[in-house]
Amino acid sequence: MAMKLINANKKLLFFIPALFLLASVNVNGQDDEDDCSLAFSIPEIALLDIEPTGMSNISLTLTTNPESGLPVATSGATNDDLWINYTSCLATGSSNRSVSVHIASGSVPGGLRLRLTSSSYSGSGQGSFGTPAGTINLSATPQTIISGIGRCYTGNGQNNGHKLNYSLSISNYNLLKYNNSTTIQIAFTLTDN
């Protein structure tokens, strides 16, 4: 009886490793696959500002010429301190954008002409920048000053984007009034074409 039990245990000792071996042998070579979805969105964006931020108020002054017979001095009637920065992201197939400008409040005193010129792009940005429209006479009617803006960013701050040159000149001496100071608010808008 004792011998039989020993023999039975020996068989078990054989079978158990055999089962382990079987389990090991039959697991070769089968692969499996599963997946997940990676999704995110890049949104369209249109941002514009005038730099330097918080210092975009400028003053243009016409001064009396001390010499009679000479025109009014315009040396203080120009300014090119300001820059226009923008960021534009478009979907495929979307039209380019443009920047328009108009006088949002106030008006240019009679006999004067306020002109704005945008320079070509310069700075640290990348992409498809807009093309300046040249010099325009500012009015209450929106006018395009930069066109053809694609996907781009100009870089932030002064010396990035398009330099703005304002100039005040006399269009009609007959309409000039002495000490006729006024404040004009000028609005820039980045729009889809």
């Binding site: 692969d31 979907a91 990348q126 996907r151």
Partner: peptide
């Protein structure tokens, strides 16, 4: 912003090999 605005999606496959 130089990449076109869009909803991007790709399927990621994980494969386990013995």
């Amino acid at each position: 912003v130089l990449v076109p605005a869009d909803d991007y999606e790709t399927t990621i496959y994980f494969t386990v090999y013995q």
